[in-house]
Nucleic acid binder design. Structure first.
Lengths: 203, 203
DNA sequence: CTATTCAGCGTACAGGTGTACGCAAAAGTG
DNA sequence: CACTTTTGCGTACACCTGTACGCTGAATAG
């Protein structure tokens, strides 16, 4: 036996996943991708797809899980960089953009399916983003804000960053630094405003 | 002659547009709508569609134009309300949410096609949102900020509002007031932070 | 009046889709 | 060794898609 069965199965499963991600682009979303297109990309017969996923939705959910890993990677990387000092906001934004640019298709999926038509996918994407928000909320709370304020800040920050992320993915690389800097500025406004309004209430 | 030809043509054109908007929902996006589905909804033969639009993309562009009108309506309404006094931010957010809830499908189209796969549609949606941003930027500049800061503020505000708008459209009506209030809070943070950072730089 | 224009229809076709079904062959099992 | 399991394939089918083409009937023009 050259290759074990489970090993081979995992291999084609990866082929399907990778083929799907590779076929994503500005012009082609996961939603507009057909089972047959995916199978063609993975080099298998259309009906073989079913040996690995019940349908396209299940594949989609798997991909969103992959997104989750990437999002966590952003946070781990950012935290490591904090230890070396520097602006928290700048470091976070920079890290986010960096990871996003190395996995553009994963983020395309995230951005697109967030407002997509498949309930399960939307829910899954939301869960991943929510995780991001909670993480940020905890951090902000730890710095001394009440929960309600922390949630509002975290949510707004994620909205701004994701909005800019989508913009950046569609923009020419030469414009990305500018987008990044504007996001930093926007987050600083937000953080400063929250601080001021917090102090004026709590002495 | 009971009905003039141009009159009748305009009528079916409207029927197509309305049928399209009516078929939009959380589960069905414009992108996932077929020409035949639209024709069925409008009560015409599939091939009759071509008497009014070259293809689905052209229909999509027409719908985005319709969105533009709605966005302008928001601004007109908000401005009228400013005259009666009250918080600018609160009034703006309230007006936005109000108009959005009376034309949910138009905003669904906007939110979805913003990250859609059709270049022309994305561009058109972007143009409408950009118009919104410019309008806001002018207002902020008029209150005394430099252009760069005004743009950053406007863009961030639109990002926050649109993000919450999409969230609100998907949420249960009972949760909408809460979302609305949080947006107000977020915009206040942003405005306050911009003010403070502006003052600390310009004396 | 006759002649022209044109919105709307029905038919027809080529091409794509998801997926049910049964077979082959290789890997795992005892 | 014989037996079972399981991955992958090919065929087949029903269905939906966009759209080319030619006709009809009514509104318009002269």
């Amino acid at each position: 036996m050259a290759i074990s069965r489970t090993e081979q199965k995992e291999k084609t499963r990866r082929a399907i996943i990778d083929a799907t991600l590779n076929q994503l682009s500005v012009e082609k979303s996961f939603a507009s991708l057909s089972l047959r297109e995916v199978a063609r990309g993975a080099g298998i017969a259309p009906t073989s797809f079913y040996r690995h996923f019940k349908d396209m939705e299940e594949l989609g959910l798997t991909l969103v899980d992959e997104c989750g890993l990437t999002l966590r990677q952003i946070m781990r990387k950012a935290r490591k960089r904090f230890e070396k000092g520097g602006s928290v906001i700048q470091t976070s934004v920079y890290t986010f953009m960096e990871v996003m640019e190395t996995h553009p298709n994963i983020f395309r999926l995230l951005f697109h399916e967030r407002s997509g038509t498949t309930h399960a996918l939307r829910k899954a994407v939301d869960r991943e983003i929510q995780f991001f928000i909670v993480e940020l909320t905890d951090y902000i709370q730890a710095v001394g804000y009440e929960k309600e304020s922390a949630v509002a800040q975290a949510e707004a920050m994620v909205a701004i960053v994701f909005n800019a992320g989508a913009e950046s993915l569609a923009a020419k690389p030469s414009q990305r630094k500018q987008i990044e800097q504007r996001v930093v500025q926007q987050l600083r406004y937000l953080a400063m405003g929250a601080k001021v309004l917090h102090l004026s209430r709590n002495g």
